[in-house]
């Protein structure tokens, strides 16, 4: 046909140049992994990373948490420069740490410090799953233990937001011993009358759930968070049966009596604030 001469049929696809690809600002939009809807990142930011459609709680970075909870400029960070060594001389470990440092802008998987939530000063630790899956090596254990010690010495409450895959394999048994170190610190703090609040966020598993995450005077969790000791796959292999969908979710733990409350992120600051007020020295008269 004659018109075939005029139609421009492309036989190949054009791949945009690298620069052209970057014309769209990175991460302008974000897809909700649960309901698959796409949202402006700004909108999600306004909603504290909670999906406006399905209420899915997206993971938050350590600093997003701090900004969400603390009065502006009130947060003072502790031990920011502490970094891991490579005690077992594990191949590639140092490179992986460096890569995650670049990616997350953090020196390790936990940020500790103190600041003011509403009008109440508190010691604080928040884990960031973007750094080595939030795994606990020597630095994570040491920073958390120090934060608890600081809380004890300064007579402050201690709040922790956990997000971790568990112990860090590359530091071997030294990682395991961080479970003990943090637990001994909590015992000392508790004996001195200190208040500890643990908020488990997605995911909190293995050695972290089996130590400080479970040791708050109050143990809370965010909706839908995965919380458990052993990995789902390992359990399925062990017992040779399929596990229910809600297995090891915050709601599952709540049902079995292991949590004080599952708290929606939009209510988080208010709930913490109420508890901090209730625990003010001397109490309300």
């Amino acid at each position: 046909m004659l018109k075939d001469f005029f139609s421009k049929k492309r036989k190949y696809a054009t791949i945009p140049r690298e620069e052209a690809k970057q014309d769209i600002p990175e991460g302008l939009m974000k897809k909700c992994p649960q309901c698959k809807q796409i949202f402006y990142r700004k909108e999600l930011n306004n909603q504290l990373q909670v999906c406006p459609n399905c209420d899915h709680h997206h993971q938050m970075s350590a600093w997003e948490r701090i900004h969400m909870l603390f009065e502006e400029n009130s947060f003072v960070e502790w031990d920011r420069d502490m970094i891991s060594e490579n005690p077992l001389e594990f191949p590639d470990y140092v490179e992986k740490l460096e890569k995650d440092r670049q990616k997350s802008g953090l020196n390790e998987a936990v940020v500790t410090g103190k600041g003011i939530i509403d009008q109440y000063e508190t010691a604080f630790a928040v884990m960031d799953a973007r750094y080595r899956m939030g795994s606990m090596g020597s630095v994570v254990g040491e920073k958390i233990a120090r934060a608890i010690e600081n809380a004890r010495e300064e007579n402050l409450p201690f709040i922790i937001f956990t997000a971790s895959g568990g112990a860090r394999m590359q530091e071997g048994v030294l990682s395991l011993m961080q479970m003990t170190k943090t637990s001994v610190a909590i015992e000392r703090f508790s004996r001195a009358g200190g208040l500890m609040i643990s908020v488990m966020t997605h995911p909190t598993t293995g050695g972290v759930s089996a130590s400080f995450a479970s040791l708050g005077d109050y143990n809370f969790a965010e909706p839908g968070a995965l919380i458990g000791f052993a990995g789902r796959r390992i359990i399925e292999q062990t017992i040779r049966e399929k596990l229910p969908d809600d297995f090891q979710t915050a709601e599952f733990l709540m049902k079995h009596g292991h949590l004080d409350k599952v708290i929606h992120r939009h209510d988080m600051k208010r709930t913490l604030s109420i508890l901090l007020e209730i625990h003010q020295p001397g109490g309300e008269s």
């Binding site: 130590s211 479970s214 292991h258």
Partner: peptide, 14 residues
Amino acid sequence: EERGQSEAIARNLK
């Protein structure tokens, strides 16, 4: 898991 393996271990440590 249902009976709180994590909690049981953590409590012993503390």
